[in-house]
């Protein structure tokens, strides 16, 4: 980081936060503080929804994942547009007309108090588990690349987020999200332009795409029916749709974005904008990663992208040297084969292209094998078990090859992506804590001003909780990621109960409550006893909740029968 980089980073952060606070003046009632007085235009909600979903680790990991595994991860998002259409037709009008602060408040209107309590408890557990990781993960990556103490990064990022979220409520969160998303777009475009400009002069963008394709990095669509393959067209369309329905329809950190809309139409537009923009955006991020891969065909990358891990195995000379020698030879062979392929392509020589392509793929396999041996050496020398340097690839490229100012912009993107996610999380956790717990069960008839200050205090509490959780992250090690994984096991249950609420008129509170417990048991059984990809857990949980809910309603004469809200 040079002086210009620090200037760009500090300047963009100060501008974003100042603008957010300026736009949030007058957040002096609970309704304005938590729902922006229902005045938000569609474009602000749309960018806020997008910024909340795009966490720092998504941005850092996605480019690295494309470098290592190609672009097939984009299939994960194929179900998102379908989910947005379904939610626009169902959840948006129902939540708006129910005039609720939280999605779980609607569960009491439709079912009963115990179903609302269970729904809000599941959300608090699930989000509470993951909020620390949103702060911890980027701090660790920045610590590895720049040597910045992760505690300092955590404290600075956390303090900034708490400050503007506590002062300005959801208006500050939304308007800072808008600016943060614009910084992310700018950073992405700059990254793409820079990586193409940094390719050797005799390698065109078309050549680069052919080389990435030859190495399997442009395999975007897989029509395989393998249940254990995480990313296929089918797991994306079906599993991805259920995951998006759960996340955007039942998770208060997203629902609260579109509850602030000035009308049902504006809220629908915000979701449908995401339906149109999200898949191309992810494609673009992955494509940047694929181009970084091509860049490193002609510029030798380090054996491992995590500097500390590389130093650790370099210290073990006798075991490291043969791996490094094989790696260097494979790199040279691959570079030569790539140059030969470009020559043959220009001469329009199919035989030459086929020969050089075979050598290129062989060298790529040898290179991958040497990198795998390097990762194994890290583990054997007492380093991180399950070592993986995917998260460090893109930032390593940025810091080595981008000119002054651009590095600061990319780090601003990392900060923006992290802060936009954390602010939405602590804002929604505070909302559910006050509306669904405190105002419902503890203090039922206090003044609006009392609940406004309670909301501010709850925001401070959840912000400090996230910072503490992230601060202990290093001691927890890989446990913190396991905890985040556990958080994702609750989504299917929440989706199931909202499907019952919206579509199954004869199911009452008892059916919904028992269905939720059965759905959660089914998800935990799938997690503990099968190898099914996690994308299918939501489908399993949702189906079990609906089936058990209907069964209880069918066999129980005492089921409360309230009509489902009409659209």
């Amino acid at each position: 980081m040079r002086a210009l980089d620090w200037l760009v980073l500090a300047g963009s952060l100060v501008f974003i936060i100042a603008y957010g606070l300026y736009r949030s003046r007058g957040s002096n009632t609970v309704n304005r503080y938590l729902l922006a007085g229902k005045t938000m235009p569609w474009y602000a909600m749309a960018l806020s929804i997008m910024a909340t979903q795009a966490s720092a680790i998504t941005f850092i990991s996605t480019t690295g994942q494309s470098y290592v595994d190609g672009m097939r991860f984009v299939q994960f998002y194929f179900g998102l547009p379908l989910a947005m259409v379904i939610l626009s037709a169902t959840a948006v009008p129902i939540f708006h007309r129910a005039n609720v602060y939280t999605a779980y408040e609607y569960l009491e209107q439709r079912f009963d108090a115990k179903t609302r309590a269970l729904g809000s408890l599941i959300f608090l557990l699930q989000r509470g588990f993951s909020v620390g990781l949103s702060l911890y993960a980027p701090a660790i990556v920045l610590a590895v690349i720049f040597g910045w103490p992760d505690q300092w990064t955590t404290v600075i990022m956390g303090t900034l987020v708490i400050t503007y979220t506590v002062i300005g409520g959801i208006q500050a969160v939304t308007w800072t999200d808008v600016q943060q998303m614009l910084v992310i777009f700018l950073g992405l475009i700059v990254s793409m332009i820079m990586v193409v400009l940094l390719l050797p002069a005799d390698v065109s963008l078309l050549d680069a795409m052919h080389l990435a394709g030859a190495a399997g990095r442009l395999n975007v669509v897989s029509t395989s029916f393998d249940w254990n393959d995480r990313y296929t067209l089918w797991s994306g369309l079906i599993g991805g749709m259920f995951l998006a329905l759960s996340y955007f329809g039942c998770d208060q950190s997203q629902v609260q974005r579109y509850l602030t809309g000035r009308s049902i139409a504006q809220s629908k537009l915000s979701l449908l904008f995401n339906a149109m923009a999200k898949v191309p955006m992810q494609f673009f991020i992955l494509f940047v990663g694929a181009m970084v891969f091509v860049f490193y065909i002609f510029e030798k990358p380090p054996l491992l992208f995590a500097p500390a891990a590389l130093s650790r195995i370099e210290a073990d000379g006798p075991r490291h040297r043969p791996v490094e020698t094989r790696y260097s030879a494979a790199f040279e062979n691959r570079r030569q084969a790539a140059s030969d392929w470009i020559d043959a392509h220009r001469r329009d020589s199919p035989d030459g292209q086929a020969r050089s392509l075979a050598r290129f793929r062989q060298a790529q396999q040898e290179l991958d094998a040497a990198r795998a041996d390097g990762a194994r050496l890290v583990q054997e020398s007492g380093g991180e078990q399950g070592f993986n340097d995917t998260n460090y690839i893109f930032l390593s490229f940025v810091t080595r090859y981008l000119p002054a100012g651009f590095v600061g912009l990319i780090i601003a993107v990392i900060f923006a992506a992290a802060m936009s996610t954390i602010s939405a999380e602590i804002n929604s956790l505070a909302t559910v804590s006050i509306i669904d717990v405190y105002r419902r069960h503890v203090r039922k008839d206090a003044s609006d001003r009392h609940y406004l200050w309670a909301s501010r205090l709850a925001t401070v509490f959840w912000g400090l909780y996230a910072m503490s959780f992230a601060g202990y992250g290093r001691k927890l090690g890989s446990l913190i990621e396991a905890v985040n994984m556990l958080g994702s096991l609750f989504y299917g249950t929440l989706l199931g109960v909202f499907v019952l609420a919206f579509f199954m008129r004869r199911v009452g509170g008892n059916g919904a409550f028992v269905g939720m417990l059965a759905g959660e048991a089914a998800i935990l059984a799938a997690f503990l006893f099968t190898g099914i990809s996690f994308l299918w857990y939501n489908v399993i949980g949702c189906v079990v909740v609906v089936a058990v809910g209907l069964a209880v309603a069918f066999f129980s004469d005492g089921a409360k029968r309230r009509p489902a809200a009409s659209q």
Partner: peptide, 28 residues
């Protein structure tokens, strides 16, 4: 909103087909 919803689903279908053609064009 029916037409808007169908347009979004049609758009997704077009995107998937374009991605497939993109993959085939460059996986020489």
């Amino acid at each position: 909103w029916r037409r808007v919803y169908f347009a979004v689903i049609f758009y997704l279908g077009v995107l998937i087909v374009l991605f497939y053609l993109f993959m085939k064009a460059f996986s020489s």
